[in-house]
Design a protein around this nucleic acid. Structure first.
Length: 601
DNA sequence: GTATAGTATC
């Protein structure tokens, strides 16, 4: 036994074996040196040492040198590029490293450029090449290049690689090709959490929120022991848009049960979900418990408070954010300006607008101009608002004119109302509700002929209107109602409930306001139609199913009509129910017969 | 032999 060991050791040290062993040792030494680098200065020293040892000619050492320079956060792609150029025959690993390094630095064009160089030199791509490359295409929305690369993937035979497939799902989604994205997803045999996460994120970004929820259910919970945080961010965003509070709460529960400390992004998404589902206190509580906050958390909170009509608090948080040294962006300013507008803080609003431009160097977008028109309009400064629109450096859109028109309606200024409508004839043609406001204003001024003329115009166009819908969540399921909906299984019960509600409302002195019905039908028909507006159907359905004492939360895509507003106020009183309705940009809290918007919306 | 995708606010 002893003899064998000795023999073996001797054999191991035979002269012909030693160069190879020495080489391995050298390589290991290089690698250890490079792995120890924690910042640029250490890396420079390691680089010098490797040159001194004469190891740069060793391809393994050179590759690792390159990767250490290109990939970490402290790395430098300029430096990496100079190393890359000194490598005589860069191979797949070196090219992959460069592609990934540039993509990591968001230098996506260079990433693609390196790939072209790789193709020219005939260097083979592998499964590591495509994830970063497709990420670059996704970022640049370079669908043509993305599809070409998809072609290369087929040619090489990597179309079944899970990492490549997941990257393709993301790339097609980011390039706006949801069908291609779904097609790739369907072809994935063994879908992992990342595949589901990618396809759900794609649906959420497309505004297909119900589909996101469906996909999540389809995925089931058994596929991952620990929930992927980014998946939950997409899911919470979907819930936030849908007003799906119960679903969102359920996600919150899963997160709490599985993750000991939620990261800032998830915390922000949770806050956003609660606020957009109408639970402002819960959102506030989560926000205040965040140890660290970033501009997104503040953004969610500021816009949220503004949407709920809590302007003072929104502006306080804005000051707090600035004090913390966080740089505001254009989105945050939309929240800030709308808070000023709701609270009638004209001076502050205009100051913020100037501060945004001059102090923070943010170019105002159409949304900011909209806020200012709204700000002036609400305050009754109609001439100033009109002047402001006329001197805006960008073309006003229909929303800007509509803000002015709404203000004219509230302040009974027919003259400027006419200008607001007529200045934008080609645009406004698409939105009959604007013409309706004008016709009301004519009627109020007893200009019957003008009123009739506008209505005739309206009757020709009412088909162009975006179909309105209301969403309501009952027992973690979202129900969607459109006006005159008969498609629900419980339609009969819902209409019976509507009938009962009408009886009760009559005692309260409610009378239907049919003036906003656009159709050319008789008064009785109008009343029938009014009864079955989507919001009313949703309320009836929720009254049948949701437990007493729990607020009814409705999310709708269009602005509420006057009648639905009055109706909901009365219902909140008769049934002693809090009803929270979110429309495109505001929360209406109906309680005891009153609404938080104080009837200006 | 070295590394690999998906992430929120108008």
């Amino acid at each position: 036994m002893i003899g064998t060991t000795v023999l073996h050791q001797t054999h191991f040290l035979l002269p012909q074996e030693s160069p190879d062993v020495n080489l391995r040792l050298k390589e290991q030494e290089c690698l250890t040196l490079l792995r120890r680098c924690m910042h640029m200065e250490e890396f420079r020293q390691a680089h010098a040492q490797i040159l001194k040892w004469g190891f740069f000619s060793n391809s393994f050492c050179a590759s690792n040198l390159l990767a250490t320079c290109a990939l970490p956060d402290w790395g430098s792609m300029d430096y990496a590029s100079s190393i890359f150029q000194q490598i005589e025959e860069p191979g797949t690993f070196e090219f992959n490293t460069m592609i990934k390094g540039y993509a990591k630095d968001f230098n996506m064009e260079k990433s693609l450029f390196v790939y072209c160089e790789m193709l020219e030199k005939g260097v083979h791509s592998d499964n590591f090449t495509f994830p970063s490359l497709l990420k670059a295409c996704a970022w640049l929305k370079a669908i043509k290049e993305g599809m070409q690369i998809h072609g290369h993937i087929f040619k090489i035979g990597l179309e079944s690689d899970l990492y490549v497939q997941n990257s393709l799902i993301n790339m097609y989604g980011k390039c706006g090709k949801i069908q291609l994205s779904s097609a790739v997803f369907e072809q994935v045999d063994l879908k992992d959490v990342a595949s589901w996460s990618a396809i759900i994120a794609v649906h959420t970004s497309f505004g297909m929120w119900c589909e996101s929820l469906k996909l999540f259910k389809e995925m089931g919970h058994d596929r991952s022991c620990r929930p992927e945080e980014s998946l939950y961010v997409s899911m919470l965003s979907a819930c936030s848009h849908l007003g799906a509070l119960d679903f969102g709460r359920c996600l919150h529960g899963i997160l709490l049960r599985n993750i000991s400390e939620l990261n800032l992004t998830v915390q922000t998404s949770l806050t956003d979900m609660y606020i957009n589902c109408g639970c402002i206190e819960k959102g506030l509580c989560l926000f205040q418990r965040m140890i660290k906050k970033n501009k997104f958390s503040y953004s969610v909170m500021i816009s949220g408070l503004a949407m709920h009509g809590c302007s003072k608090e929104a502006l306080e948080f804005f000051s707090e954010m600035l004090e913390e040294g966080l740089e505001p962006d254009d989105v945050i300013y939309v929240g800030v300006l709308s808070a000023c507008s709701r609270a009638g803080l004209v001076e502050e609003g205009l100051q913020c607008f100037n501060r945004m431009k001059f102090e923070h160097g943010i170019e105002p977008t159409i949304q900011h101009y909209c806020c200012i028109v709204d700000l002036m309009g609400r305050a009754g400064m109609l001439n100033e608002a009109l002047e402001f629109i006329r001197t805006m450096p960008i073309d006003p859109n229909d929303i800007v004119w509509r803000s002015l028109l709404s203000a004219c309606k509230a302040h009974h200024n027919l003259k400027i109302g006419e200008i607001a409508t007529k200045s934008s004839v080609p645009l406004i043609l698409h939105n009959p509700s604007d013409l309706l406001i004008l016709s009301h204003m004519y009627a109020r001024a007893k200009k019957w002929e003008d009123s009739a003329m506008v209505r005739t115009e309206l009757a020709c166009q009412h088909l162009h209107q975006t179909p309105g819908f209301s969403l309501v969540e009952v027992k973690r399921k979202i129900y969607r109602f459109v006006s005159q909906d008969m498609s629900h299984r419980e339609s009969e019960d819902i209409y019976e409930m509507i009938h009962q509600m009408e009886w009760q409302l009559k005692f309260e002195g409610y009378s239907p306001d049919t003036s906003q019905i656009l159709l050319d039908v008789d008064e009785e028909e109008k009343r029938q139609r009014l009864k079955a507006h989507s919001q009313k159907l949703a309320i009836a359905f929720a009254l049948i199913h949701a437990s007493q004492g729990i607020p009814i939360r409705i999310t709708r895509n269009l602005r509420m009509c006057n009648d639905c507003h009055t109706y909901t106020k009365s219902i909140s009183k008769i049934y002693t129910r809090e009803i929270i309705v979110r429309d495109r940009n505001y929360f209406h809290h109906f309680k005891d017969g009153a609404c938080s918007c104080r009837d200006y919306w």
